[in-house]
């Protein structure tokens, strides 16, 4: 499968770039931390309240962070004039998207997992017992954010005011992801935690729909 081996090479390139600079991960972690702390000032969370509002706040901060973090994904290629070279290097342009969205999902997941203990302490919720399930929710949610996010990063790179355009394009579209991830996370943080399979299925469905769309229309997104 040339597609996957190409994508794997490109994924290696994305990871190496991030490993050398470590810009995205550090800034995103700090950004989420700031947002979560500021949110907690807007109300004084008791245990019940943080169970009710916590998941929503958490996902809202992930979404905001993602809309900033996904910004350089294609912008970097454009600024360095490497987009055409990248296109020439693979036969199927979907490999580029596959690599970039895997890298983005990974980065998002990593920042989210790093944030979880801090969130648990600040908002007084118990996550240890449900940690594996929580990671599953985080993974499906992050994938749902990263797929359209990577696609729109290619779109917003072409526009003026791109820093504002990406959140504007992305956030309304992510309404279903926000709802489903918040509900699924909320189910896990309740007093009697339960895995909300229906919402997980919904998230998986969302991922499949947009992955298919990206597969169909990805090549047009890379036109210059």
């Amino acid at each position: 499968m040339a597609l996957f081996s190409n994508a794997a090479v490109l994924l290696g390139k994305e990871l190496r770039t991030e490993y050398r600079s470590r810009e995205l991960l550090t800034t995103t972690v700090v950004f989420i931390l700031v947002v979560v702390v500021l949110f907690s000032f807007t109300f004084d969370p008791s245990a019940g309240e943080s169970r009710r509002f916590g998941p929503g706040l958490l996902w809202l901060s992930f979404l905001f962070a993602a809309s900033l973090m996904l910004q350089p994904c294609f912008l970097r290629e454009q600024n360095n004039d490497t987009l055409s070279a990248l296109r020439l290097s693979v036969r199927d342009p979907f490999a580029i998207f596959l690599a970039k969205l895997s890298a983005n999902t990974l980065f998002l997941l990593l920042t989210e997992v790093l944030m979880l203990p801090i969130f648990a302490v600040l908002y007084n919720v118990h996550i240890l017992a449900v940690f594996p399930q929580l990671v599953l929710v985080l993974f499906l949610g992050s994938l749902g954010v990263a797929i359209p996010g990577t696609a729109f990063s290619a779109i917003s790179a072409q526009a003026r005011m791109r820093e504002l355009m990406l959140p504007l394009l992305l956030l309304p579209l992510l309404t279903p992801v926000l709802l489903a991830s918040t509900e699924a996370t909320g189910g896990l943080l309740e007093e009697h935690p339960g895995l909300r399979v229906d919402w997980l299925g919904f998230l998986a469905g969302f991922d499949v729909v947009f992955l298919t769309a990206l597969w169909l229309f990805g090549e047009y997104l890379l036109e210059e």
């Binding site: 729109f152 579209l173 279903p176 489903a180 919904f202 229309f217």
Partner: peptide
């Protein structure tokens, strides 16, 4: 392209 993605989102928003 954005319009296509946005329209695909409509049923998902509705059902969620």
């Amino acid at each position: 392209l954005f319009g296509i993605f946005a329209f695909l989102d409509v049923p998902l928003v509705y059902f969620s």
